[in-house]
Design a protein around this nucleic acid. Structure first.
Lengths: 167, 167
DNA sequence: TTTAATGCAAAAGATTTGCAACATG
DNA sequence: CATGTTGCAAATCTTTTGCATTAAA
């Protein structure tokens, strides 16, 4: 559980962002956001759904999904891993690191001796054993950047950052 | 595309591991492994399936899945991200890093000023823009370690590493 | 009041499983 | 030859979508 002051701060940030983007602040959105913001577990949609349902018995799972992605588009939550629909496999057993495109899920390896020798804090071992570590760099790949440049000829204004996946 | 010598090396490693684990070296397993081993794209099961089908027209998608997880259990391929079935969300917007359990998917945050300032190689920007970077530490969490200790009272011999998910 | 958001039910995707036929060691 | 594997079909699970109804602003 996150401390209340922090949850409060995140909630306010959400309200500001929602207002700025012109999306409505519904009861269910507040509860759903509060749930993710208060969790340390990195929950999935189902887990958020179960938790929110205790307070808002009529929410539906699809609203949870829609809201989670909305929050994602507003830049208020991130996803763990590449998450492009399905499990991705990697047969590279040498030490290496990943570049991942947040739009399309493209993933590429890169190597760096310096990054191979990361200094992981001792405290981490309180979670369990450590098998390996690597760096994950996130960004927008060339192809995706080209696509959005084509779609948005000019004036990339901030309010453009509205909720729209699937354009 | 990976160079042939490397693919060859990976294939031999697979054959050795298969023999050691006592699993049969079928035509489809070879082709499926060759496919992941030769790819730079971190393909999902469907992509592997499509590629393998051109050479082995009768393979089925479920064999691809089974083989991919078998390779995973043999330690020959890894998955990208936590991949515990569903998308996981993270509302922590401060710079932070992740500990992920490779068995159960548990994910926890940790912070480290040193790790916040990673030195990403310039070459990475050839993939696209860089939005953020963080470290992902993988290991076996306390709970999972306790569980396998209970299941395997003694003699954790290497050949125990056999293909068995879901025991 | 106007327009976006919700809930429902159904669709679409992704992944797994039971089982008889089949191939490997 | 014995056993592990495959392919198929069906079952599951996760996520998305169309649409009439409801609720923010």
């Amino acid at each position: 559980m996150i401390n209340n002051a922090e949850i409060q701060r995140r909630l306010e940030k959400f309200q500001a962002a929602a207002r700025a983007a012109g999306v409505k602040l519904t009861h269910q959105r507040l509860e759903i956001f509060r749930e993710v913001a208060a969790s340390l577990e990195h929950p999935d949609a189902e887990a958020v759904f179960r938790a929110v349902k205790t307070r808002l018995p009529t929410v539906s799972l699809d609203t949870v999904y829609r809201t989670l992605w909305l929050l994602h588009d507003l830049g208020l939550v991130a996803t763990l891993g590449p998450r492009r629909g399905s499990v991705r496999f990697d047969a590279n057993l040498e030490p290496h690191h990943h570049y991942v495109c947040v739009r399309c899920g493209l993933a590429r390896d890169f190597t760096s001796e310096r990054l191979d020798a990361l200094d992981i804090p001792d405290s981490v071992s309180s979670f369990g054993s450590i098998v390996a570590s690597h760096v994950e760099v996130r960004g927008v790949c060339r192809d995706c950047a080209a696509k959005s440049a084509a779609a948005e000829p000019a004036d990339p204004s901030p309010s453009e950052q509205e909720a729209r996946r699937e354009t």
